[in-house]
Write a protein that binds this DNA or RNA. Sequence first.
DNA 1: TTTAGACCTTGACCTAAATCAATCGGAACG
DNA 2: CGTTCCGATTGATTTAGGTCAAGGTCTAAA
Lengths: 248, 248
Amino acid sequence: MPMLDTHSFAHDCGECPIRHRAVCSRCEATELNRLEEIKYYRSFQAGQTVIWSGDRMDFVASVVKGIATLSQTMEDGRRQMVGLLLPSDFLGRPGRANAAYDVTATTDLVMCCFRKKPFEEMMLNTPRIGQRLLEMTLDELDSAREWMLLLGRKTAREKIASLLAIIARRDASLMQRRPSGRISFELPLTREEMADYLGLTLETVSRQMSALRKDGIIALDGKRNVTIQDFDNLMEVAGDDSDGGMLS
Amino acid sequence: MPMLDTHSFAHDCGECPIRHRAVCSRCEATELNRLEEIKYYRSFQAGQTVIWSGDRMDFVASVVKGIATLSQTMEDGRRQMVGLLLPSDFLGRPGRANAAYDVTATTDLVMCCFRKKPFEEMMLNTPRIGQRLLEMTLDELDSAREWMLLLGRKTAREKIASLLAIIARRDASLMQRRPSGRISFELPLTREEMADYLGLTLETVSRQMSALRKDGIIALDGKRNVTIQDFDNLMEVAGDDSDGGMLS
DNA sequence: TTTAGACCTTGACCTAAATCAATCGGAACG
DNA sequence: CGTTCCGATTGATTTAGGTCAAGGTCTAAA
């Protein structure tokens, strides 16, 4: 999970990642020192729940390392993932007291947390933080809407291809290059998690992965290591024209 | 489409609706006069396209009257609605040049537009506008995520019930009361639009509406007038526990 | 009053994906 | 070195919803 940059809300934090750079690029030392005061770290093991939907949530946070998922569950157990939090992504909602989703650590996870009250106060004094947050929230909204197209209208095969494309694209962008041709990466999700993300069952996910392998679109090494034989080809299968960017 | 309140970004605009009140409740006359300067109105007829996905978009806007839909379309014509804009809802994305979705007027529509450049400048000087926008965007994100659960995991019957519940809830809230018991309203959407919204075909929508009628959950008068016999009962059918609030 | 054209409903049939069930593979552990 | 366990795969079968097709209903214009 490499990072391009390690700027942070706080002036000298070496761990919080890129997304916050815009926040601190014109930093005022006093405000940033305050941020430093209200900041603390929390770690979670893979599989641990960060917070349950409906629970009181008195912090906001930023993912430093690892992956977390946002999901909603119906009483009978049907579950839908509604977001993936990657390093640098923001969690929490200023101005709301309770969590709206279950947040779960998919891998080992480190979050940089800020107590909510002082964070909100600071947002008022430092408009740039709010502006950055608005930008990020709009990005997430676009991603969520792209995902709605996938959930509502794509076939199982297209869904799988879309998910693989998104992961590949993210991996490529961390290497600072356009995704194209052959790309390999390790899946950060189990089949069941993929299913919950795509609105499918795990059996269907498994079958479609096998089908894509048989059709030479991807290669599989073990369960987790995926090689995309040709990125453009995969995009074709995904039924995408635009280059949307879910994953947050 | 009644409105509770007609406050606006602009100090003395009698048409822009409630959502913006927080913006101008502490208004500084100078800024608001500037807003007045860059403001203009546009009207659309039912069925007209406000803007196509990918088109240059040099304004942001607020719905004054009528309903607009946001939708995404795949090359082969599959369409998914990703949002509904009701009076007071905001359209547009500060800091992005092109529209991300097709925006279509479902009914006759009046929008209050602001040229984007000056609007963005003003956001910098008037943090409260950005704060309000962040709040609204977070609400929309929650709605979108609730919709993801519906699209990914609910049955056709549950989807229809959910949509009816949402429309009923909105209607009730305009009357300033909690939805309960018997509620009647006029559907603002055709069967096809409902289908595009729910990730179904129009035939399935029609069949499920008939089924709900036969089961005594709803009554239909003509195609558009719906009476919910018992709201709590409908919620049961929708499979909802929480009282989420899509529709924006 | 007829005609035309949306929009909606209903039926018959089909298929993609869900469900149910058996098996496999590899890592962890005694 | 076998056993256990968890995740993944694969097969057989079922089913919810899609597809195709034939009317029906209402409005609006001729």
